[in-house]
Design a protein around this nucleic acid. Structure first.
Length: 817
RNA sequence: GCCCGGAUGGCGGAAUUGGUAGACGCAAGGGACUUAAAAUCCCUCGGUGCGCGAGCACUGUGCCGGUUCGAGCCCGGCUCCGGGCACCA
């Protein structure tokens, strides 16, 4: 018999699939669609095990639905703009375009060697003008709707990448890409008004029933909605108010001082007459230089009294105004009313500087501990509001400030507008022209794309576009006078916020994508990728979809109703990384075992959403299994191929039953739970069963018929997992069709039904026996059998049965005394 | 500090969501085949005790308690590990 030779088989079928365009799709309203999407890769140079895992999971899902008769869109592309390409250019003098293209070409071949069923005709590359012109188109639409704007503000500056970062790209005070400590810098930057959609983004989480709860919670926290009120505190001996934001207006009678951020615009005015002015100013200088990181590490609270007092509008008492490092300018109004009795931070500060602490909320239950009480309770010492609950008081006090024109109820969000300007070369040029007379003027649609000039010198430091005269100098579309182009490029997360829509009509030349085709394919039926994008990419894509819906290009409110976040691939307990040197190269594994074995192992070693520890021994186990299946079929097929399923006896009946049970199990698993590891283990069990029973089955014609059916079914069910080998076996079986697009087997519930079942007999919660009875036996029948069993009944004699619980076909439980 | 997850044999992990704990795979041990090895096939495999033996009993899902005929799964209280957010007013 033929040996299993993965190299030959795999290249053969990859060629056939490609030549016959087996995985290319067109819109077909007569068929149900299924859009299976995996997060597209950054073309870093080579694929890694994380990619292999992500794309293998997606491929099994895509292949399954395709065999189920769905019209399956399963595309792949490249998130091709970004810093590594530019860094390579700086280091090796290689053009980012060339670097990116070569990487893509190499990685595309790697993906093809894995046998992934992509419709390659729809491949997109975000660094090509045919793609990024639509980034520019969308940007201008946003500009026109007031959603893209430029403002000067304090932004996150990465000294390593020499560019600005979005809040979402700052992880624990460090750059998400290069891990440098992020600094704060005041710069003029382009922003997208994602905050216009805060409420929608939050509310529509409800539609995302098939997202991991964890991701929803992370997004909810990131958006950070809080209801509260603005309140104006008049400053004594000065014109003007200090406006604060609080979620705890019910504690206002305990507000015994105020604190301003060092960045607060009123600070210079407040300290003007202070005797300590010089000391404060030098402290302010120091505070300004503090980095993002030092600010979030538990720095000791520190502050200065300004010398000024404000009036608490409720108590009418004079309270001191302080400046301190624990109040940040970026949230609320940059100023707070401090309530030391009911806020731990204010308490800490008050203790240090000996400020008044006044309790105004009494806990509902007596408590023994001293110190801060931060919960809700009953108001005391709070004038006309005394005796109210915190909740009631918040309502009434907010009404009070609104009535008296000294404040209003508001809802604030932690989410900030998305800073998309990047001072780098390898990205989409922002299509804006800066004209001294007309201001910021968008490039007319007909002039798109604004091409990224190729002939530039890329060295470290500064944006190369600024020095590119022929790019910068242009004329104003409005007044035709001399003007300059914007030289900032877009955050690459802009590119990836709508690529899934481009796949639906990747060569459209009129719009970013065809609304008709998007309407056919959207939403994405399953989106698979790493959990590291839980906030960044997924929140941006949701925002884009909502915007594109508002301008009438898409119909769906949410792009990805079902999300599968796959775990990391680890070696020695930590994520594989070049710097740690714990990397297993997919190419080497393909070379050694073949793509089918690699696919099988990466699916089998752990459930998709958990981390997966690489194991050299484990992949060998999978190779053994594949060989076992190969031999089982090639050794036995000739002997069974001419037989039919008919009138089965005990063994053939069991084989048919197990075959149908397997179809059911795998189908339901792939449809819903996507626990691919257990799907594989049930196919291993089935294979073991066939090995054990094959002598008996070969003994007569009904057995041979049953074995034939079992083998054929196994090849089909296994084909999404190990497609090359299964195509080859399918051909060996004499089939002329391509297995990848042939019909998924159906199961018959009647045939899958067991005849006998084992009922467990429990006495006082302990398993005392098991008896085999026909499925569907009644409680009486089973009880009778139990009494016949001398071992079990010995536990029951001389005892009074207090309770008896009967779970049909499963448990008979006695409670005796 | 706050918010999420986890914790099951020597290891990766099953247990269809309250009903036989340890499927499947790896490792280990034993056997068959072989001149030998590899490959392959078969058997054993949580712990303790009893028995020559088929087997039997007890115990066992991080710890303590609870609900239930019955808990890996539910409830209350911890411990440890992982992740997210972080002076958010």
């Amino acid at each position: 018999m033929r040996e299993y030779d993965p190299k030959k088989i795999e290249s053969k079928w990859q060629r056939i699939w490609e030549e016959r365009k087996v995985f290319e799709v067109k819109e077909d309203p007569s068929k149900k669609k299924y859009y299976c999407l995996e997060m597209f890769p950054y073309p870093s140079g080579r694929i890694h095990m994380g990619h292999v895992r992500n794309y293998t999971i997606g491929d099994v899902v895509a292949r399954f639905w395709r065999m189920r008769g769905y019209n399956v869109l399963h595309p792949m592309g490249w998130d091709a703009f970004g810093l590594p390409a530019e860094n390579a250019a700086i280091k090796y003098g290689y053009h980012p375009k060339k670097w990116t293209e070569e990487n893509i070409n190499y990685m595309r071949e790697q993906l093809k060697r894995m046998g992934f069923s992509y419709c390659w005709e729809r491949e997109v590359n975000t660094s090509l003008p045919e793609y990024y012109r639509w980034n520019q188109w969308i940007f201008i639409k946003m500009f026109e709707k007031g959603l893209a704007y430029k403002k000067k503000s304090l932004v996150n500056w990465c000294p390593g990448c020499k560019t600005v970062l979005a809040n979402e790209q700052v992880i624990g005070g460090r750059c998400w890409r290069c891990d440098s400590e992020v600094q704060l810098k005041e710069l003029e930057q382009w922003f997208l008004r994602i905050t216009n959609y805060s409420e929608d983004l939050l509310r529509d989480h409800e539609m995302l029933k098939e997202w991991p709860e964890k991701v929803i919670i992370m997004q909810r926290n990131w958006i950070g909605r809080s209801e509260g009120a603005y309140i104006d505190f008049p400053v004594l001996e000065m014109d003007g108010n200090i406006r604060v934001f609080t979620t705890r207006i019910d504690t206002i009678y305990g507000a015994t001082f105020m604190v301003l951020s060092s960045q607060h615009p009123m600070v210079p005015l407040l300290i003007k007459d202070s005797p300590e002015r010089d000391r404060i100013e030098s402290w302010l200088e120091k505070a300004k230089k503090e980095t993002y990181l030092s600010r979030i590490e538990n720095v000791e609270k520190e502050g200065f009294f300004t010398g000024k007092y404000a009036l608490n509008p409720f108590t009418k008492s004079k309270i001191p105004v302080w400046i301190a490092n624990y109040v940040i300018m970026e949230y609320g109004t940059g100023a707070i009313m401090a309530v030391p009795a009911h806020d731990a931070r204010d308490y800490e500060f008050a203790k240090k500087y000996n400020l008044e602490i006044k309790e105004v909320i009494k806990p509902l239950e007596e408590r023994e501990w001293e110190g801060v009480f931060e919960g809700d309770g009953i108001l005391v010492d709070s004038g006309e509001f005394t005796g109210l609950t915190s909740e009631e008081a918040r309502k009434r006090m907010t009404e009070f400030v609104e009535r008296n024109g000294i404040g209003k109820g508001v809802t604030l969000y932690r989410l900030k507008d998305w800073g998309i300007s990047r001072q780098r070369y390898w990205g989409t040029p922002i299509p804006i022209i800066k004209c001294d007379r007309c201001g910021l003027v968008p490039v007319p649609y007909e002039d798109l794309p604004i091409m990224l000039p190729e002939n530039v010198e890329i060295k470290g430091g500064g944006n190369p576009l600024e020095k590119c005269e022929e790019f910068v100098n242009t004329s104003c579309p409005k007044c035709k006078g001399k003007a300059k182009r914007e030289t900032d490029t877009m955050d690459t997360f802009f590119d990836s916020s709508w690529y899934f829509l481009r796949y639906t009509s990747p060569r459209d030349e009129k719009l970013p994508f065809s609304p008709e085709k998007a309407s056919y394919w959207m939403p994405v039926d399953i989106y698979i990728g790493g959990v590291e994008h839980a906030i960044l990419h997924l929140i941006y894509s949701r925002f884009f979809t909502k915007f594109l819906r508002d301008i009438g290009l898409v119909e769906v409110k949410e792009p990805f109703p079902k999300l599968l976040t796959q775990g990391m691939v680890t070696l020695g307990g930590s994520a594989m990384s070049k710097s740690k040197g714990n990397v297993v190269d997919p190419d080497e594994m393909i070379e050694k075992y073949g793509a089918d074995t690699l696919r099988l192992f990466i699916l089998f070693a752990a459930p998709p959403d958990k981390d997966l520890e690489w194991s050299d021994k484990g992949i060998e186990g999978c190779y053994r299994f594949i060989n076992r299946v190969w031999r089982l079929i090639t050794d036995n097929w000739e002997a069974v191929k001419d037989f039919k399923v008919e009138g089965f006896d005990g063994d053939s009946g069991e084989a048919i039953r197990k075959t149908h049970q397997l179809i059911k199990r795998i189908s339901e698993n792939l449809e819903r739970r996507i626990h691919l590891n257990t799907a594989i283990s049930s196919m291993m069990e089935f294979t073991n069963f066939l090995y054990q029973k094959k002598e008996e089955l070969m003994g007569n014609s009904s057995g041979k018929g049953a074995l034939k059916e079992a083998l054929k079914t196994l090849v089909k069910l296994l084909s999404p997992f190990t497609p090359h080998m299964c195509e080859e076996l399918w051909e060996i079986m004499g089939e002329k069709s391509i297995l990848s697009v042939s019909e998924w087997p159906k199961w018959d519930d009647e045939l899958a039904k067991e005849e006998m079942t084992v009922v467990v007999v429990q006495i006082n919660g302990r398993v005392r026996g098991r008896i085999s009875v026909p499925v569907g036996s009644s409680e009486e029948e089973v009880t009778e059998e139990v009494m016949k069993d001398s071992k079990i009944s010995s536990y029951l004699c001389q005892k009074r049965i207090v309770k008896k619980v009967w779970i049909p076909d499963k448990i008979l439980s006695f409670h005796v005394e």
